[in-house]
Design a protein around this nucleic acid. Structure first.
Lengths: 148, 148
DNA sequence: TTTAGTGCAAATTTTTTGCAAAGTC
DNA sequence: GACTTTGCAAAAAATTTGCACTAAA
């Protein structure tokens, strides 16, 4: 049941999801989806590099357009982990919270359970529905905080 | 004690903070600080526009350099609220959590109290020190969520 | 076929950098 | 006066767009 890191786990019906909404299932779109799936957290540039490692000649503008489409369809999502670089991941894989350390830049993925009280409170008090998959917490990891 | 929105509330000793670390207190730096203070959440471009509304001719590159310096000194901080635009705010004002609605784009500032359990858990379980001032929660506000 | 999608090249937008002149301490 | 900082102009990134051609349905 475990999934080796770096393995593509594209939704089996990715093509149906596209066609069902009137879009076409193209090899480029499959490649982008596979790249996002295997890279876990990738910038458009990363995705482009990975895609062109398999298939030559997929243009960077196609990468951007495809990511935009896939995001709009809810198949991928993006967050900002570092400074300005948006990183994409499969929407399916979104079930985790990111911890970003300002000291060493390390990114840790943890269970969304820790956010449960927050989510509950926001729902109750603000009527706000939290997208846990996009929750990123900045701070300092154990190794980088002032007093260990 | 209340503070009218849009009023500059630059730390009184901003210049000392700079000089103490060997930097110089310049009018440009004061203007940038005031702009960040009054705009609350501003992109570098916003800051530049505001600054040049008061003083003519402050170059955009100075804005970038100044924001970078002030951030490094811990006087301002930035977050990503929208797509790729970094927004700056006074570090002093950071004591709130942002809710960003994916539907209407509305940004709400709420008390950091809601994050207290999260912060406590991360500290206890991961040794991670959360920077609450940079916590941004994406989701859907009461008006935009599927079922009201 | 028909219409959407891609590649390519060029245009934008955003951010960074080198350097001489001006300003701060 | 010594050493920073700024303005300017140009470079480098990052992202978007127009359009003719290719390919999916």
């Amino acid at each position: 049941m475990a999934q080796a890191p770096g393995t593509e786990r594209v939704p089996r019906d990715w093509d149906q999801q596209l066609r069902a909404r009137g879009y076409r299932a193209t090899p480029q779109r499959q490649l982008v989806l596979e790249a996002v799936a295997s890279l876990r957290h990738a910038t458009p540039e990363d995705v482009g590099a990975r895609v062109n490692q398999t298939a030559r000649g997929v243009n960077i503008s196609t990468i951007y357009r495809t990511l935009e489409l896939l995001e709009q369809l809810g198949m991928v999502a993006h967050t900002h982990l570092g400074h300005g670089a948006p990183v994409y991941h499969l929407a399916e894989d979104a079930d985790h919270v990111h911890l970003v350390c300002r000291g060493c830049g390390k990114i840790t993925e943890i269970s969304p359970d820790v956010a449960r009280p927050l989510v509950a409170t926001l729902d109750a008090e603000q009527g706000f529905e939290t997208d846990v998959g996009h929750l990123t917490v900045y701070g300092r990891c154990a190794d980088c905080r002032p007093r260990p």
